[in-house]
């Protein structure tokens, strides 16, 4: 199957929006190439703002651009899109209810060789805590493109998270992206695997391995962490009665944390999390890092075995 980077999906979505929505504007903090924003910048120089290495100013400017009806998309690495500018987002975007789309590339360990300073694993947690904020983490090129296009029509702040490496591009081209709507990928009866972002494909790969051991796994892609598709999650868990979550993020504050909260309140269920366990990343090839920090299909398989006996 074709392999493509999710950041290019963002770039393709932005190119499309440039043609179809004249209110869309884009801002970038000196990472136009990395964020694949070059097409938009070249095609719409009047609607593209290069702000330099000044992320705080970029978020403020984006908030100000909404006053006058623009729909700003900001682009930089995930770490500089969140931790570096958290208070700017909190006050000028989230609290002020502004229609800003914070688009964040190079999220997680798969940024690779640049190491822990750039590998944010806390961004989903930070962003989902902000009132008004929608948090989306699509799984491949096609879905990232579709999500980019869809968020322009959502009125309000959105955090869109994607990554650097080429990953399997397996979801349909030109799919309709519905914010907050989980996507069932495989039906099963023994365990629910809820995965987001780069972990959705390994979750699918784990299904075959689990089947060999006689386990029927259900896989659901939770591309929107907030608002969470509670209905889809609860329906699946009612059937399977145990859960594994999988994400390229800290356990604290991630998708697993959101699902655990939901289940504690509504349907207490054994749950295991495939996520980074309270640790920073480090330099290395992306896939080797995913192995070292326990974010592979094999980790999903072992978590399933662990949770299934707790039923």
């Amino acid at each position: 199957m074709e392999r493509k980077d999710t950041r290019s999906g963002f770039g393709a979505g932005l190119t499309e929006l440039g043609k179809t929505n004249k209110n869309v504007v884009a801002l970038c903090a000196d990472l136009t190439g990395s964020l694949k924003m070059g097409d938009f910048a070249n095609n719409h120089p009047d609607r593209f703002f290069q702000v330099g290495i000044a992320e705080a100013n970029m978020i403020g400017m984006a908030a100000g651009l909404t006053v006058g009806g623009k729909i700003p998309f900001t682009g930089t690495f995930a770490n500089f899109s969140t931790a570096r500018v958290y208070d700017q987002i909190r006050q000028s975007v989230s609290y002020s209810g502004k229609n800003v789309k914070i688009c964040a590339s190079h999220a997680g360990l798969t940024l690779g060789e640049d190491g822990a300073t750039h590998q944010t694993l806390e961004d989903i947690g930070m962003m989902k805590m902000l009132p008004n904020m929608v948090v989306i983490n699509p799984c491949d090129f096609n879905q990232t493109k579709a999500a980019t296009i869809a968020i322009a029509d959502h009125k309000g702040p959105v955090y869109l998270r994607f990554g650097r490496p080429k990953v399997t591009n397996f979801t349909p081209e030109n799919q309709k992206f519905e914010i907050g709507k989980a996507v069932p990928l495989v039906k099963g009866i023994d365990v629910s695997i809820f995965a987001t972002g780069h972990l959705v494909w390994p979750a699918l790969e784990s299904v075959k391995l689990l089947k060999e051991e006689g386990i029927s796994a259900e896989v659901i892609n939770i591309h929107t962490i907030k608002p969470l598709d509670k209905k889809a999650i609860l329906e699946s868990v009612k059937k399977t009665k145990c859960v594994v979550t999988a994400e390229e993020h800290q356990m604290n504050g991630g998708l697993g944390d959101s699902i655990a909260q939901l289940l504690c309140r509504e349907l207490p269920t054994p749950l295991e999390m495939v996520a980074v366990d309270d640790s920073f990343g480090e330099s290395g090839p992306p896939m080797k890092l995913m192995e070292k920090y326990g974010l592979t299909k094999n980790n999903i398989v072992s978590s399933v075995k662990k949770v299934i006996i707790r039923k």
């Binding site: 504007v25 100013n57 403020g60 400017m61 908030a63 100000g64 006053v67 006058g68 700017q88």
Partner: peptide
Amino acid sequence: QGLSVAIGTCLAKKLN
């Protein structure tokens, strides 16, 4: 934060 916000609105005004 206000100056950044104001500059954003200045740019929106120019576009409009």
